[in-house]
Nucleic acid binder design. Sequence first.
DNA 1: GTCTATACACTGATAGAC
DNA 2: GTCTATCAGTGTATAGAC
Lengths: 218, 218
Amino acid sequence: MNLPAKHPSPRPGQKERRLAREKRILEAAEKVFAEAGFGGATMQLIADMAGLPKANLHYYFPTKEALYRQVVENIFQIWLRAADVFDSADGPAEAIAAYIDAKMEISRRHPAGSKVWASEVMHGAPVIQDYLEHTLTEWTEGRAKVIERWIAEGRMDRVNPHHLLYMLWATTQHYADFNHQIETLNGGKPLSDAQWEEAKASVKQIILAGIGIDASNL
Amino acid sequence: MNLPAKHPSPRPGQKERRLAREKRILEAAEKVFAEAGFGGATMQLIADMAGLPKANLHYYFPTKEALYRQVVENIFQIWLRAADVFDSADGPAEAIAAYIDAKMEISRRHPAGSKVWASEVMHGAPVIQDYLEHTLTEWTEGRAKVIERWIAEGRMDRVNPHHLLYMLWATTQHYADFNHQIETLNGGKPLSDAQWEEAKASVKQIILAGIGIDASNL
DNA sequence: GTCTATACACTGATAGAC
DNA sequence: GTCTATCAGTGTATAGAC
C-alpha cells in the first residue's frame, strides 16, 4: 500500500528538482529586478519569465521582498569572490590588474546582478545595509591598509586608498550598469570580444599609470 | 462690478505662483524618484512632499510619466551645462580638470538628479533614448575627436578616448549614485568639505597621471 | 506538491463640488 | 483655479481545490 507521507519523503531527485526551480526563479527575478527596479518589478513578470504560475512563486519565496533579498545576497557573494583576487598577488601591479579583470568580467557576464546591486545601494541599501556596515567595511579597511603598505614600500604613488577603490568600483561597474548607454554610443551594438578586451586594457592602462605603476610587463 | 474671466486673466504674480509651484513639485518628484525609482515612487508621496493634494499634481502634470519625463530632461540640461566646461580650456590638463571639478560638484549638489539619471539609463532609457542617440552621441564623438587631437599633438598619452570619457563619467557620478555606500564606509557620516576636496583632488590626480599629464601646476 | 480563483490594499487618474 | 470623493485597474498574497 502506498503511504504518502504527510511531509514529503525526500525522494531522490526531488530536492534537486526544487533547487533547480529555485535557481530558475532567482535568475528570472534578477533580470526583472534589474530591468524594472524593485518597485517596477511584478511577481507576474517574474513568474512568466520563470515559466510557472504566479501563485507558485509564493510557495518558493513567501514574499516579493524575500525573493529580492535572496537575489541581492547572491550578488554580494559574487562580488566577494571577485574581491578575493585582490589578495592573490603579492604586488600592486598584479593585484590591481587582476581585480580590474575580475570585475570587468563580472560586468560583462552579470550585468543584471550589477544593476540590482546598484539600485539597492542607490535607494539607501534597505535590505543590505548590514553587509555594507560589516563585511564591506572590513574588506575595504583591510585593502586600504594593504595599499598604504605598498605606498610606504615605494611600489606605487601616494594616493588616497579609499578613493582609488571607489574609482575601481565605479569604473568597472559602469560597464554593466550603463551598458545601455555604452551600446547606444557604440552604434546600438553590444561591445564585441575585441572591444571588451580594449575596455579592460584601457581601464588598466589609465589606472595603473595613474598610481605610478609601470604595467608594460603585465 | 467684478467680472471673473472664464479663462483667468493672467494677473501679475499669478504665472509666477504657478511656476514656483511647478518647481516645488519637480524638486519633490526628483527626490522621490531617486529614492524609490520610477516604479516605487507614488504620486501620493510626491504630493505630500510638495505639500499639496494628490489630485492637484495631475493638474500641473497630466500623468506620472509626464512628470518623470520633465525631471529627467531637467537633469540632462544640468549635465549639458557641465559638459560645456570641457571646451572652455584649450589644453587637456585644464579641460579635464575643470570637467572633473564640475561633475564632482554636480554629484555633491544634485545627488538625487544623478540617481534618477542612472536609474533611467540602467532601465534602458525608456524616455531619454532620443537624447542618448543624438545629443549625447554628438557630444561624445566631438570630444573624442578633441582628445585624439591632443594625443596627436603629444599633449597626453595615447588612450582610447571613449573609455577615458566613460571613466570620467563613472568615477564622478559614483560619488552621487553610491553616496550611501560611501557614507557608510565613512563611518555613517557624509563627506565633509575637506573630504570632498580630497575626493576631487584624488580623482584628478589618478586620471591626469593616468593619461600622462603633469598636473603639478594646476 | 501544484495550480485556480479570489481577497484585499493601493495605485494612477478623473469627475464634479466649491 | 483648487480640493473632495471616487473609479477602474493592478499588485501582492492567500485559501482551497486538485
